[in-house]
Simulated scan of single mutants.
Amino acid sequence: MSLSGLLSVLHIAAAINGLLVASILIFAGKRTALRARWTLGGFLAAGSLLLAIFVLLDTGIWVFGRAIGALMEALAALLPALYLDYVLTVTGSRLRRAWLYLPVPVFTLIAIVHVDLLGSGSDFAGAILWLAFAVAASAIVYARRRPAGRPRDRLAWLIAFMIVFQLAQIARFAWPQSLILFDLVPLMGTLGVTAFVVFTLLGSRTLKTLVSPTLDGRVDPVLETALATIGNNRKWLTRNDVSLNSVAAELGVPARKLSDYLAATRGRGFRDWLKLQRIDLAAKLLVDPAERRTSIEAIGLMSGFASRSAFYVAFREVHGVTPARYRQRRLPK
């Protein structure tokens, strides 16, 4: 088998695997992560389909036509919309995001009316600019409001990959005569889809976070009361050795059940739940007139945070402002 034939097989295999994982995310997800799983699964599915179409056209199995061009343009416009929607969802943005999908029918209509555009050196020009905007916006959003309750590195790696992918797209359209650059974007798409699938199957928490865990998300009143008791107990929140096992033992439930329950009802793990309880305690202390003269650093320590920097970062992730600014706004004059 030639090198080009081997690459085609790898491209198709990556596309098929990507579609399978995307289907799991979309159709086996839990209600509490509805938008996150649909946007991430849709992003993976759209990228996998576009990759498969490129390979089928390149190998001659499909012949380019108006319908295929319109489909490719729709997918190319849908990719950045789903990607940016996912980033905004994970970072907790409450903006209405229906406008993100407006370019999809616009670019599709252009492809239908002016099909020659897709056969020239400027194919997907509008979608590429749209993707550039989405990538730049995602980097800005992530820098200003990193996600609370999800692993930061996973989203950071996705944004980094999209930046590199966009740079490759720009290089490809700047030098359309280069065969190496022409093959670079599909190859990067294959590597990106493959990496996503491999890391997911080898223990990434992506599926565990978005797909329904053992529990179905129904609230257990007894367990909720017990969790509230822990959350209101300053002694527990400020302990240095507090852990999933110690809290589960205090509640009289298996640690695995407690972990699954938090994931099912809150969409986050034990550490993130504990951090939010400590932030809630700190917020109460900051607006307590009796603690008016207590320093910000002392309140962080009183809430269970080991350092000033950890307290400031965690508080700002949740409330969007520093503890000092929060106190200034909320504390009665």
Score class of each variant (00 low, 15 high):
273 W>I: 10
21 V>H: 02
220 D>N: 05
245 N>C: 12
126 G>W: 05
179 L>R: 15
255 A>E: 01
268 R>C: 03
56 L>N: 10
117 L>Q: 10
208 K>V: 11
129 L>Q: 12
64 F>S: 13
277 Q>M: 06
61 I>F: 15
144 R>A: 12
75 L>N: 06
196 F>T: 00
70 A>H: 07
196 F>H: 00
169 Q>D: 07
332 P>L: 00
37 R>M: 14
27 F>I: 08
289 P>D: 00
164 V>C: 02
124 F>A: 04
197 V>A: 02
66 R>F: 09
312 Y>K: 13
157 W>T: 15
28 A>C: 14
178 S>I: 11
295 S>L: 05
51 L>V: 10
125 A>I: 15
18 G>R: 04
235 K>I: 15
182 F>E: 05
150 R>F: 08
303 S>A: 03
180 I>T: 11
149 G>T: 08
300 G>T: 10
121 G>I: 06
153 D>I: 04
313 V>T: 15
310 A>L: 09
260 D>F: 06
310 A>D: 14
291 E>T: 03
322 T>K: 05
262 L>T: 00
214 T>R: 15
57 L>N: 00
124 F>T: 03
333 K>Q: 08
117 L>I: 12
115 V>L: 11
164 V>L: 09
16 I>Y: 08
77 A>T: 02
77 A>Y: 03
31 R>D: 14
244 L>A: 12
106 V>K: 07
161 F>Q: 03
112 I>A: 15
63 V>F: 11
81 A>I: 04
95 L>R: 15
13 A>N: 05
295 S>R: 06
264 A>D: 12
74 A>T: 03
135 V>G: 06
240 N>T: 14
227 L>K: 02
209 T>I: 11
73 E>W: 04
299 I>E: 05
97 R>Q: 09
150 R>V: 10
300 G>H: 07
167 L>Q: 04
101 Y>V: 03
5 G>L: 06
162 M>L: 11
22 A>W: 04
21 V>W: 02
266 R>Q: 12
327 R>S: 00
93 S>E: 10
47 G>M: 14
33 A>R: 13
221 P>M: 02
301 L>W: 13
159 I>L: 15
282 A>G: 07
67 A>I: 15
303 S>H: 00
72 M>P: 03
309 S>W: 07
214 T>S: 14
211 V>Y: 07
30 K>L: 09
235 K>P: 09
185 V>R: 08
253 V>F: 01
217 G>P: 11
208 K>T: 10
139 A>L: 14
104 V>W: 07
268 R>F: 03
193 V>G: 08
254 P>K: 08
163 I>R: 04
33 A>T: 13
256 R>G: 01
154 R>G: 12
32 T>Y: 10
276 L>R: 01
85 D>F: 07
84 L>G: 02
289 P>G: 01
189 G>F: 01
234 R>H: 13
242 V>Y: 05
215 L>K: 06
36 A>L: 14
247 V>N: 04
311 F>W: 01
298 A>F: 06
311 F>M: 03
166 Q>H: 12
76 A>H: 12
93 S>R: 10
270 F>Y: 13
314 A>M: 01
137 A>I: 02
184 L>R: 00
271 R>F: 10
216 D>F: 02
15 A>R: 09
205 R>W: 08
229 T>M: 13
